[in-house]
Amino acid sequence: MSESKKNFVEGVRSEIPLLIGVFPFGMIYGALALNAGLSNLASQMMSSIVFAGSAQFITAQLVHDAAPGLVVVLTIAVVNLRHMLYSASLAPYLKDLSIRWKFLLSYLLTDEAYAPSILHFEKEGLATHKHWFLLGAGFSLWFTWQVSTAIGIFLGAAIPESWSLDFALPLTFIAMVVPVLKKMPMVAAALSAGVVALLAYSLPFKLGLILAALVGIAVGTLLESRQTAEVKK
């Protein structure tokens, strides 16, 4: 087996445990996007055009709430800002690749592809062919995400409207937030964002959401900076 193929297979293999968790998540996304009022085609295409789990759930929620397009796009941007961190962290390992490779790997750069790849790169260093590992991890995730979305859309179409499935979206968000609430600044960020969202609910164009998110981010960041400063004293 050639070096590149070996790296690709290794990438796929490292991704498998993550795929087990991603599969039901993709199905839930498909069913909920459909339920939120997106067409079959739009629900499916979002999984390849945006290709970012939490941003897709949030888009479905905001479209369901009839938020203005600009606010939805702005929210997607804020939610996906973290990808710049992954981009920065992988950059030294990918710097010698052609622009085509950089395009392809950037498109496939999700949380789930990043995690095993950075571990692999840190271990292997700047060996050639290692980008095939990221391709293997990224592509297997991409493929799983498309298939699970399709199955979710298929199943979602069979669920009657009287089931209030729209409530599953906020429940999904609860399942994403609660496990990260381990430290005080995180809890404060979540609570302050939530309270501001309630206070600013009547602002037009769902701007309350953006305001609340910014306040939450600021509160968390300030509290953490203060804690770090106190430890240093």
């Binding site: 949030i58 968000f173 994403m176 937030v177 990260v180 939450g216 968390g220």
Partner: peptide
Amino acid sequence: ALHYVPPAVLSAIIF
């Protein structure tokens, strides 16, 4: 700041 984006945005929807 980026660490606080997910809990802040999601809580702003959940509440």
